[in-house]
Design a protein around this nucleic acid. Structure first.
Lengths: 257, 257
DNA sequence: ACTTGAAAGTGACGTTACGTCATTTCGTAT
DNA sequence: ATACGAAATGACGTAACGTCACTTTCAAGT
C-alpha cells in the first residue's frame, strides 16, 4: 500500500491526474486511511500501467474505462478500428502538410507580398478537386497525364520543385530589369536546362502547357499556381532574346512551372 | 450586406460558429440593424474565407486572430513552425500505428487470450528503447545487425511478418498435438522454407538467435516478443523430428521469429 | 501530549471550439 | 395589430487535466 505521491513519482503521472482518475471512476484507490488519504495496491499499479499504455494508443479515458471493466471485451475489433482512425488522422495531417508546403513555396515566389500569396492559395483551395481532375483528363492524353505528374508542384518538398520555385521568385524580383540583362538571361538558361533534364523530347507537351499557362482562365481550371500576365510575357521576351542571341538548336519554348 | 443565415448557407459555417467568432473578436460583423441583427459585408466574407483556410491548416482561432490583425505578420516563420508541428504529429501517429499493429499481431498469436498479449506488450513498451539498442549492439556485429533489421517484426505490416505471426499462432494452437503430426510438421516445413528464403547461408546468425530465444531473460533484453518456454521446446522437438525423418541436408536449426 | 510543516484532501475555474437548449427580442407579412 | 420565423443572449456540456485557494491529515520533533 503506497501513498499517492509515491505512485506519482514511480509512474510519472501527476497527483492531480491520479485524483482525476479516481473522480471519473477509472482508477479508484483500493483503500484509504481513516483520514481519507488514498492508498494504492500493486493491483492498482498494474491497472495504471494498462491505462497509460492504452492512452498511449490514443484511446480516450472513457473508452479505456469500458475496456478494463468489461472482462470479455473484443480487443481485435476495437484495436483495428483504432488503427483505422489513426491512419485517417495521418492522412489528414498529410494533406495539411501538402497545403502548408504549397503556401510556404508560394510566399517564396511572391517574395514579400504574403497576403497576395495567401489569397491565391485560397482561390485554388476553394475549387473542388474532382472538377480539376476531370478537366485535366479532358485536356491531355494518357502519356501527357504521366508527364503532368512529373511537373514541379507547389506542394512539393523535392529539391527539383524547390528550385523551380526559387527560379520563378528570382524572375519576379528582376521584373524591373531588362529581359536581356545577364541576370535574367542566366535564370532563363537555368530554367531551360532543368526543363531539358526532365522533359527532353516532349516539345509538344511543353508547348501545349505554355499556351495554357498564358490563358489565366485555363490555368485556373487546371489548378496551376496563378502567375501574372506580365510575368509570363516578361519570361517569353527573355526567352526569345536568349534563343535569338546564340542558341537556336531547339524549337521548344516556355517553362514548365 | 447579408444576414447571418445567408452567410451560413453560403460558407457552410454554422450560425453558432459565426456568433462565436464575433464573441471572441475574430470576426465582427461590419454593421448591425438597429435591432441588433448582424449584417455581413463582402469584406467580412473574404476574411471568413481566410479564417476557414487557416483553420484548415490546423491553426487555433487565437493564432488566426493575431495573424489577421497584425498587418506585418511574419508568415514564413509561422508557417514553417506550423509545418514542423504537423510533421511531429504525423511522427507521433506513426509510432502509435506501429504499436497498434504490434498489439493486433500479438493477439493473433495468442489466439484468444487477449489480456496476456496486452500484458506482454506493456512489459515490452515499459523498457526504454535506448537500453534495448545498446544491448543489441553489444550482442551482434555489424553484419548481424543488418540481418537483424530483416527479421519479421511484430509491428510489421508486410506480408512476410504477417505470415510468421500466423505460423506461430498455428503452432500454439497445435501444442496439444503430437509434434510428429502432419499438421505440425507442415508448419515447421513452411517456417524453414521462409527462413531459407530470407536467411540462406546465415546459419551462424540463426543459431545464435535461437539460443538467445531460448533464454527468456536474454530475449527480453533484446526486445523480442516473449514466447513461452514450452512453445519453444515444442518447436525444437518438432524440428528435430522433421530433420531426422527425411531431411538432413542443412545444419541450421530454430526459427527466426 | 502538543506543535508544526509537509502533504493530502476537496472544490472551483480555465482551457478549445463550438453544439445544444431555453428564453427573449426583432423583422416582416398579413 | 398580430403572428410567426429568425435572430439575439446566456448558460451548460464536452476531454483531460493544470492551477489556485482553502482545509484537513500525517508523521516527526519537542
Amino acid at each position: 500500500m503506497i501513498h499517492i505521491h509515491e505512485v506519482a513519482k514511480l509512474t510519472k503521472i501527476t497527483v492531480r491526474t491520479l485524483r482525476y482518475y479516481d473522480q471519473i471512476g477509472l482508477l479508484t484507490a483500493t483503500s484509504k486511511t481513516e483520514g481519507g488519504h488514498r492508498l494504492y495496491s500493486e493491483e492498482d499499479m498494474k491497472k495504471l500501467q494498462q491505462i497509460q499504455f492504452l492512452k498511449g494508443m490514443g484511446y480516450r479515458l472513457q473508452d479505456i474505462k469500458e475496456m478494463l471493466c468489461d472482462a470479455k471485451w473484443n480487443w481485435p475489433i476495437s484495436l483495428k478500428s483504432q488503427l483505422v482512425y489513426i491512419m485517417e488522422e495521418q492522412e489528414r495531417l498529410g494533406s495539411i502538410e501538402s497545403s502548408l508546403r504549397e503556401l510556404i513555396n508560394s510566399i517564396a515566389i511572391e517574395g514579400g507580398d504574403d497576403h497576395l500569396a495567401i489569397q491565391k492559395l485560397i482561390q485554388l483551395s476553394n475549387q473542388n478537386k474532382t472538377k480539376l481532375r476531370t478537366f485535366r483528363e479532358n485536356m491531355f492524353n494518357d502519356k501527357q497525364l504521366e508527364l503532368w505528374t512529373r511537373l514541379p508542384k507547389m506542394k512539393g518538398k523535392d529539391p527539383d520543385s524547390l528550385e523551380w520555385i526559387a527560379l520563378l521568385g528570382q524572375i519576379k524580383r528582376h521584373m524591373k530589369d531588362d529581359p536581356a540583362s545577364l541576370r535574367v538571361q542566366n535564370i532563363i538558361r537555368r530554367m531551360l536546362e532543368k526543363q531539358m533534364e526532365e522533359f527532353e523530347g516532349e516539345d509538344e507537351f511543353i508547348n501545349k502547357l505554355w499556351e495554357l499557362r498564358k490563358s489565366p482562365s485555363q490555368s485556373e481550371k487546371l489548378g496551376l499556381y496563378p502567375i501574372e500576365q506580365e510575368v509570363l510575357e516578361f519570361m517569353e521576351r527573355a526567352y526569345e532574346i536568349y534563343m535569338s542571341s546564340e542558341h537556336n538548336g531547339s524549337t521548344q519554348q516556355g517553362g514548365v512551372l
